[in-house]
Write a protein that binds this DNA or RNA. Sequence first.
DNA 1: TTTAATTATGCCAAATTCGACATATTAAAG
DNA 2: CTTTAATATGTCGAATTTGGCATAATTAAA
Lengths: 108, 108
Amino acid sequence: MDKKRKQQLEEKGFRVGSAADFLELSPEEEAYIDIRLDISNMVKSQRAKRGWTQEQLARAIGSSQSRIAKLEGGDPGISLDLMIKALLRLGTSKKQIGKLLEGELEAA
Amino acid sequence: MDKKRKQQLEEKGFRVGSAADFLELSPEEEAYIDIRLDISNMVKSQRAKRGWTQEQLARAIGSSQSRIAKLEGGDPGISLDLMIKALLRLGTSKKQIGKLLEGELEAA
DNA sequence: TTTAATTATGCCAAATTCGACATATTAAAG
DNA sequence: CTTTAATATGTCGAATTTGGCATAATTAAA
């Protein structure tokens, strides 16, 4: 199972470091990717909740539709900064983001 | 007071957008900077808690001492990604980061 | 004080991320 | 089916962030 997950991550473009050369991700690598996926998923769900298109969200933060698509798809070439800016623009509060990372939020 | 804060931010290098041309930061800009400062402060306190030097932390995440210094100083030229990687390497959990953003953590 | 250790600041070229644009692909509606 | 809106994918040059390095500035210990 881990082998498959690693392959999936690499297909998405993640650089799985030396620790992963033996198939496993380090706890830090796992947690880092986990946080990114949590946040990108929250952008997707919050945008849907507000009925915005990717184009609308993109314009609202001075970005482009293609980057929002990549963001929501978990593309590693998207910074956490851009993700957070998107979330905030969607009306998500710092507190809500905290709850998400705490695991108290399912999909928001 | 707000005038002073804006000036401080600009001195640090932040680009305070059009909304700030009238002296105020938008709620999103405020929250974004707030999140970054919270996390950078947590890196500083967690590192101190473990008695690591900036050099040690830098090596542990494949970075450099100068970037850790800038990170802890709230330099805007440091990505949230690097900050999160540093926090995780210091043993901070995703859950703890969540609590920090929720406001349930004073200094950690 | 002098010395050593740590942290802060500035610059560089390389790597990464950016917005943008074009163009598939998919989904929904007619 | 066709049309249209929305999303996904790929590429480009520009902008940002990177690690590394030099060197101040600060702090602590002697």
